[in-house]
Design a protein around this nucleic acid. Structure first.
Length: 428
RNA sequence: GUGAGCGUAGCUCAGCAGGUUAGAGCACUGGUCUGUGGAUCCAGGGGUCGUGGGUUCAAAUCCCAUCGCUCACCCCA
């Protein structure tokens, strides 16, 4: 006997009756639709890219020293013919790849795109962290102007607010330009070199390759060393240009009335980020408080073999947002209930009911009682479905060529011919 | 990768000082009610008690292993 197969842990079925609020399909739809309205209304265009790409696209996109590559969090698969593919661990690389592939550089710039869909990371699951999760993603490509950074942050925040979230905090930082990071890394090497002997093996390697990652090492001794040192933040190592850029973003946000807090500790897990980086946090969802994050990635396109295409964008974690919505007790608009419930009372009426339902369905939402049953049961079913009317189809109706239509709220009941039924639901 | 908790019906759980055939509520199907309002009452379907092994006359219950799930650390979405 084979054990019943189950979904991979860290993945979720999203449907209306799901036990946990964050996985209820209407919640999911509420979030994606709201985001879609806000972003379309801001002039962004929807795009759907594949959820898998050649591994090079994703690896270069994400950077070789990022956790996703280093900790082997990417799902890798082999295509026929041996080309290696990966499931996207973030959508930005695909968006930039699409921009390049379709020559969007000749469109009026910036090109502003958005999408939503599944993202995959091979992490162990916990609340708010899944192997397959979903993001709304927005990217503004082809123009390097702090105005776009400020707009992206404002749009992101407006999505959260339109959804009904409060207690939001924008944490804004800058990871500088590559030269700035080189300077910062030099500084860190100098700072940590005296401790090379006591650092973890991993961090000893990082000392040469990527000293910034020592700062968030998971080794306890490393953490103690870091805590004991007067580490200056990246933000203090910005060059003139990137500092001016950062100040412009801050200035624009202030003018827009978007509140934010400078967070010098923000270091993006993804390598291609430059300059602006931010996270949006929510007070009530605890440790996993990041509802989304974004940043600028002016060098990404070139890494993908394209022209230099500056870009800024953000990702919103749909499940995280759903958790926050639940915490705040936001009511999700109910799905519409049926106008008419058609109840066959005997075998012969089944197909009559279906035929009638199909005639009426272009106009109104018709539910069908699939199994013939007593009028009493049919009525109960109709009530459970929340229908406005019940139409009975049985022996008596067949003889007279009518449908018995009952209005559930008033209890009023009449016998209608098909034509009368059609005109009743004709609507204004 | 590290640590903790939990696995009994579709769901929520009881049963566990070892003892016939493993239970309740909800949900589902039907009857009560022979063509009309979510009720009531009754009945039914649905479980190799996560899996494997051990102890015992006897294991859902005790022991061991294993798998699975959940949560937390880290990172982040």
């Amino acid at each position: 006997m084979t054990a019943m197969l189950k979904a991979v842990s860290g993945t979720n079925d999203i449907f209306a009756q799901a036990r946990e609020y964050p996985f209820r399909e209407p919640v999911f739809r509420y979030i994606t639709q709201t985001a879609e309205e806000v972003l379309r209304g801001a002039g962004a265009q929807m795009i759907h890219t594949p959820i898998f790409e050649y591994l090079e696209v994703l690896q270069k996109g994400v950077g070789l020293t990022s956790d996703i590559v280093v900790k082997k969090e990417m799902y890798v698969l082999e295509d026929r013919g041996g080309r290696v593919l990966g499931l996207r661990p973030e959508p930005t690389a695909s968006m930039v790849r699409a921009y390049n592939q379709h020559g969007m550089k000749v469109w009026p710039q910036p090109v502003r795109l958005f999408t939503w869909g599944p993202i995959f990371r091979g992490e162990r699951q916990q609340k708010g962290r899944y192997k397959q999760f979903h993001q709304v993603d927005y990217e503004a490509l082809g123009l390097s102007d702090p105005l776009l950074d400020a707009e992206a942050i404002a749009l992101m925040l407006r999505i959260y607010k339109t959804l009904g979230l409060k207690d939001l905090e924008v944490r804004l930082g800058s990871v500088g330009d590559p030269e700035d990071r080189d300077r910062f890394n030099q500084y860190l090497r100098g700072l940590f070199r005296p401790y090379a002997e006591v650092l973890s093996e991993e961090s000893r390697v990082r000392l040469e390759t990527n000293p910034m990652r020592i700062l968030d090492s998971k080794s306890e001794t490393d953490q103690q060393i870091v805590a004991g040192l007067p580490v200056r933040p990246m933000l203090e190592f910005l060059g003139d240009e990137s500092r001016a850029f950062h100040q412009k973003v801050c200035h624009y946000l202030t003018q827009l009335g978007v509140p934010y807090a400078i967070d010098a500790s923000i270091v993006r897990g993804l390598d291609y980020y430059v300059r602006t980086a931010w996270e949006v946090h929510h007070a009530k969802i605890g440790a996993k408080s990041a509802l989304g994050g974004g940043g600028r990635y002016d060098g990404l396109s070139e890494m993908l073999g394209g022209p230099r295409v500056p870009g800024v964008g953000f990702g919103i974690g749909i499940e995280r947002v759903a958790i926050a919505l639940e915490e705040e007790g936001v009511e999700i608009p109910a799905d519409p209930s049926p106008i008419l419930y058609l109840a066959p009372l005997d075998e012969a009426a089944k197909i009559e009911a279906l035929a009638l339902a199909e005639q009426l369905r272009p106009k109104i939402y018709v539910e069908l009682g699939y199994t013939p049953k007593s009028p009493r049961k049919a009525l109960e079913d109709a009530l459970k479905k929340g229908a406005r009317y019940v139409g009975f189809l049985g022996e008596g109706e067949r003889v007279k060529g009518i449908v018995t239509l009952k209005h559930l709220e008033s209890g009023e009941q009449k016998e209608l011919e098909p034509l009368q039924l059609h005109s009743l639901f004709e609507g204004p």
